[in-house]
Design a protein around this nucleic acid. Structure first.
Length: 422
RNA sequence: GGACAGAUGGCCGAGUGGUCGAAGGCACCUGACUCGAAAUCAGGCAUACCGGUAACGGUAUCGUAGGUUCGAAUCCUACUCUGUCCGCCA
């Protein structure tokens, strides 16, 4: 959520920068609502002050109580009315702001769609093949290790069974990623996979994107996490962090997404699932250091791809392609030779104080100083399922086997390649 | 699922319907003492908004939402959360 008074003071600038995101956003009511809120607020306070003065008299002079009583009661009613009006206004204003995305950072290129994103850097080169590389689902099915048909029978579309060494590969990748990040000072966290409405609101998934989430039926409403970002960022909700920043966490979790609105997209394979695994990096940083933190976090995520030997590029998203809560985002896009395309495997974002304001996460700049909102960041480090995809497509051989990256061999119990299940 | 207890400032914790924005302690800040530190002593120290250059003044906030009352941290109702015990359970 944006800061109300900041928006009020810099209205034209804020609107201009939000419009760079594209889409429709109507803030025309903002100014009128804000002014009316202020007027009501002043009036309410003046009335309350009058009542408090009279109250003071009654407190010391009991004889006036009977005399002033009825008038006080009436004043009380006026105050209640004003409070009601004020609350209605604040609800409207709040609703407006809850559905308003973050302001893009000045270093973000203005653009309408992913076509306007900028490639910041590239690692490695496209591998060459002496045969036509297959898509990952063909490789997986040929190995007998990937089963979409039975998953459809059991759960429906956008689910998969992994079997044998491929299932193990997913587990190995997870352990590898967490070990690498732990070495760099990220504290491993195993978070809850179900969270409250409040937590989903804190990180910005709600109220605007409720359709994208799975939630439990029944009285105890809980949401299946779409990413570990939600529980791990909210880990520090309503807190004042006293220690050194940035604080760094990494968390493995399954992620659940309804994928409403992506019907027809990536219908084959593991790219877009209702359930997938992800190792997430989360940082809490000082506002004056959050941009450096984003560079660091992005580099830390990319280092996994480097160690796996996967060709990829780092893309700076333009204003039109960023997520709702983000002020600046880098995507890591890995090369998939089977698809002949770069695909997102990690998204690293700085949210400035947008999430911190919603979730009330603050820090104390120095002992004795006032707490202030900090900046939150996160990024995938990496999406595990898509990493499996990348390995299958990049390291496949003509005979259908797949060479495993050297760094994973210890995690695979010495296994160096995937061979068809016998 | 059943029974009971609780929710107060950064933390702990006291609190009688008006004298409570709230005792006391810890932490923190400033000063004194000291070569320096510790200890000790003195003072300061909640947040947000409004007005004011400022000093300062005003308003709200004691889990959340309501209610009673001229007046609520204090009484009533509902809700949420936490703790303890019992049951069930990986």
């Amino acid at each position: 959520m944006l800061d109300l008074s900041f928006v009020a003071k810099n209205f034209d600038t804020v609107v201009a920068r939000l419009e760079a995101r594209g889409g429709k956003l109507d803030l025309s009511r903002f100014k009128a609502l804000f002014a009316e809120r202020k007027r009501l607020h002043v009036e309410l306070e003046a009335t309350q002050a009058r009542k408090n003065k009279a109250q003071e008299v009654m407190k010391t002079d009991a004889s006036k109580r009977a005399e002033l009583g009825p008038e006080m009661k009436q004043l009380g009613q006026v105050i209640k009315d004003l409070e009601g009006q004020l609350k209605a206004l604040e609800d409207q204003l709040g609703g407006l702001m809850m559905n308003t995305p973050n302001v893009p950072h000045e270093s973000v290129p203005v653009g309408a769609s992913e076509a306007d994103n900028q490639v910041a850097r590239t690692f490695g080169q496209k591998p060459t093949f002496t045969f036509t590389p297959r898509q990952h689902f063909e490789v997986g099915e040929k190995l007998g290790m990937l089963d979409f048909e039975r998953a459809a029978k059991v759960s429906g579309s956008r689910f998969a069974f992994s079997l044998g060494a491929l299932a193990r590969l997913e587990r190995a990748l997870t352990a590898f990623m967490i070990d690498e990040h732990s070495k760099k000072g990220y504290l491993e966290v195993l978070p809850p996979y179900l969270v409250s409405r409040q937590s989903m609101t804190g990180t910005g998934q709600l109220p605007k994107f409720e359709d994208d989430a799975f939630k439990t039926a029944g009285d105890n409403e809980l949401f299946l996490i779409p990413t570990a970002e939600v529980p791990v960022t909210n880990f520090h909700a309503d807190e004042i962090l006293e220690g050194a920043l940035p604080k760094k966490y990494c968390a493995f979790s399954p992620c659940f997404r309804a994928e409403a609105g992506s019907a027809g997209k990536d219908t084959r394979g593991l790219i877009r699932m209702h359930q997938f695994h992800k190792v997430e990096l989360v940082m809490f940083a000082r506002p004056d250091q959050s941009m450096e933190a984003l560079e660091q976090l992005t580099a830390d995520a990319a280092s996994i791809l480097e160690k796996l030997g996967l060709h990829h590029r780092v893309v700076l998203l333009c204003t039109g392609d960023m997520g709702f809560a983000s002020t600046k985002t880098y995507d890591l896009e890995v090369w998939l030779p089977g698809q002949g395309a770069y695909r997102e495997i990690s998204s690293c974002s700085c949210f400035s104080d947008f999430q911190a304001r919603r979730a009330k996460i603050r820090f104390r700049p120095a002992p004795g100083e006032k707490p202030q909102l900090l900046h939150t960041l996160n990024g995938s480090g990496l999406a595990v399922g898509r990493t499996v995809v990348a390995i299958l497509e990049n390291f496949q051989r003509e005979d259908g086997t797949v060479k495993l990256p050297d760094v994973l061999v210890p995690y695979m119990g010495g296994l160096t390649e995937l061979k068809p299940l016998g």
